[in-house]
Computed example of a mutant assay.
Amino acid sequence: MRTERNLTRLDRVFARLDREPERPAHIDVPRMSRHRVALFAGTLAFYLAIVWAVVITSWLVRFDWQVMFFRPYQQWAGIHWFVDYYVVLGQRGPTAVMVAAWLGWRSWRQHTLRPLLTLGVSLLLLNITVGAAKIGMGRLGPHYATTIGSNEMGLGGDIFPSGHTANAVVTWGILAYLASTPRARRWLSALSAVTSLGVGLATVYLGTHWLSDVLLGWAAGLLILLALPWCEPLIARAEVAVFDLRDRWRERHGAFVPAPAAPSAPVGAPVMIKPRTTPAHDEAAARETVSGTGRAARAPAYHLAPGPHSTRAERTPVTPVGSRRPPHADRVPRGASTSAARPLTGG
């Protein structure tokens, strides 16, 4: 006897994704338009200008030291507790988990892997670009500065650009990038901009970053968001590859794929009923057809029943008339006079 393999949770997830088209028709994939290319070029120029201003120890570095000596965490000590919690919105671990949960639900509802794959590509670009810049420039933070007025570059630090700020721009900006309507995209863009701005200023308040670190972090995160349309073909190919890998895995392990059920007649539809005939009637109809003397043979008549028949359990029981006992010669029917039936005795 053949037994079918039980479906695993992964099989059920992919079955859910296969129900409808993988990419909804009403959602437009952003393209690399001229406006976006111009914004990308302007942001890249701003990024390089900030790096150059710090390398040559310009007025921006002097302003960094002035803000550091101002010590905002001492000037406004009453909001320190709030800033400690708010800056978590820029930490990569908690924000990635929150956004991935939301985009996972979006992938489930839209039957596509694009939201999760887009998040993965953006975080990968963030780790590569920002991480390489941090290690390459090696700038020390305000708490570890050695020489007043210097740019603190090339001393083994890892705070330039600000990872909290860049992560806030990318993580919350990806929600606006994947928005399904223009109105939602505008609102989410404004919300992500305010959130990332607050995270950057929170790091300056706490003294963990220079102000120039925050400016470069904003530019680094915005460059990743603006470059995502160039990655859309790669995301589409990755989605196709994931589903192909799923199909090969199913074939290799003999996964059971339920076949679609045959459409059944709706309840209440008319049913074709063939009238019951006797063997004698069938024999007479055959003789008429062979001899040709009778009337032309008619096709068996079919009648339309008004609806489906009720089951035996739903029918109203009918009490039979009369007695169920078999007839007997010596048995007297009920209610009849018994005097005439009995033999007379005596003289």
Rank of each mutant, 00 (worst) to 15 (best):
R246Y: 05
S189H: 09
N167P: 03
E152N: 04
G200Y: 04
L304Y: 06
R276N: 11
L225P: 10
L188W: 07
A15Q: 08
G322A: 07
Y205P: 04
G346C: 00
T316V: 15
M32Q: 14
I273P: 07
G163Q: 08
L10P: 01
A340E: 12
L188I: 02
W76G: 04
A265H: 03
T43R: 01
E283S: 14
L119Y: 02
M137V: 13
G335N: 08
G138P: 13
D244I: 07
V204L: 01
D64W: 06
R34D: 11
T203S: 04
V321Y: 12
M32N: 11
R19L: 13
G157Y: 01
Q74L: 13
W210N: 06
A132Q: 09
I135L: 15
T147N: 01
A336L: 14
L211T: 12
A259P: 05
R36F: 06
A336T: 14
T129F: 02
R324W: 04
D282S: 15
S189A: 10
G207W: 01
T8D: 00
W210K: 02
G141C: 09
K274N: 04
G104A: 15
R246Q: 05
L191V: 04
W59R: 03
D282L: 14
S196D: 02
R312H: 09
D28I: 09
G346H: 00
H303K: 10
F14R: 06
V271R: 14
P343A: 15
A100C: 05
A179I: 06
A297M: 11
V13E: 07
I235P: 11
I148V: 15
Y302E: 04
A301K: 13
M272Y: 04
Y177K: 07
P266F: 09
